[in-house]
Structures are given as C-alpha cells and as structure tokens.
C-alpha cells in the first residue's frame, strides 16, 4: 500500500478551504483527511501544515495526541474491542484474545491482506450490553468468544 497524495488532492484542498474560514480548523481538517485517505502519513500531515500555515510540529503533535488519528494504514474493516470498565469486568479480554488468535495479529496491527485491523477502544457507550465490539460503524453486543469467528466472516 503506497501513499499517493494526488489521489484525493482536489477534495482535500476543497475541505481545507472550507474549514480555514472557521477558527480551530486543524482537528476538523484532520478528521476529514483521515476519512479520505484512511490514515495520516507524514507527507499528508506536512501538506496540511503548509496549507493551514502551521508548523509541521504542531500538526504532528496533534495527530499523535489524539487516539482517533492514525499514522499507519488500516485494514478495510476496523475491529474495535472495547476495554472500558463494563466490558472489562464482563470478560471482553477473552474476546480480544480470541480475535487476536483468529486474525493472527496483535491489537494495533492489520492482517497482511488488509482485510481487518484489530484495535482496542475505550467505551463505545454500550456498557449495558457489555461485552461489546464495534466493527466499522456497526456494533455487536454481548459477544461470547465462540461467536467471534462468525462475526468476522460477515465483513468481506
């Protein structure tokens, strides 16, 4: 997976122009840029810094501060395992272990075919249906280790 800034440059420029007018544009720009490109490599960060007239260090500082931003490419499907309190006490570490086994990757990594990436997240607000797993924007609640293989297979 090689990065190409040109692939979405027009959209990127448009959104930067749109956001620039408002105060505090950096975070909204990063959100949308990540949506476009999937992740925020240095090349993209530096371009944004340039366009927003900010030091590269500021952009890098913000990208690395917030957990939502990622500097590495991710798989087509983001598998997020909640390790918030409710999910933790209801045994989501067992699901995480099983997912890690099934996919053959550790949390924070992606499968070699870029189909999935495995992530740990903190509370997705489904605590009453713990343990919960979020894949892309859909949620799976009250998950048992035996169900994870079947759940994964729903995502191509």
């Amino acid at each position: 997976m090689s990065f190409s800034l040109a692939s979405h440059l027009q959209e990127l420029d448009d959104l930067i122009d749109r956001e620039k007018a408002r105060g505090g544009a950096l975070i909204p720009v990063l959100h949308q840029a990540q949506e476009l490109y999937g992740y925020l490599p240095r090349e993209l960060q530096d371009y944004i810094a340039d366009r927003l007239d900010l030091p590269q260090s500021t952009v890098y500082g913000v990208v690395t501060f917030y957990a939502f931003f990622t500097t590495r490419p991710r798989g087509r499907h983001r598998v997020g395992v909640c390790l918030g309190t409710a999910c933790y006490v209801r045994g989501n570490t067992k699901n995480l272990e099983r997912l890690s086994q099934e996919l053959g990757v550790c949390p924070g990594e992606s499968t070699p075919d870029w189909r999935y990436s495995l992530e740990v997240c903190r509370c997705i607000g489904l605590c009453s249906q713990a343990p919960a797993i979020m894949i892309d924007k859909s949620v799976h609640s009250k998950v048992q280790p035996d169900q994870v293989a079947e759940i994964l297979s729903q995502y191509e």
Binding site: G84, T85, A86, R122, C123, G125, C127
Partner: peptide, 11 residues
C-alpha cells in the same frame, strides 16, 4: 466528551 468508560447518559 463523555469519556468515562461505563457512562453513556450523554449519548
């Protein structure tokens, strides 16, 4: 910015 894991009233 309801960050407390275990709380979801704001949501």
């Amino acid at each position: 910015d309801e960050g407390d894991p275990g709380a979801f009233m704001d949501r």
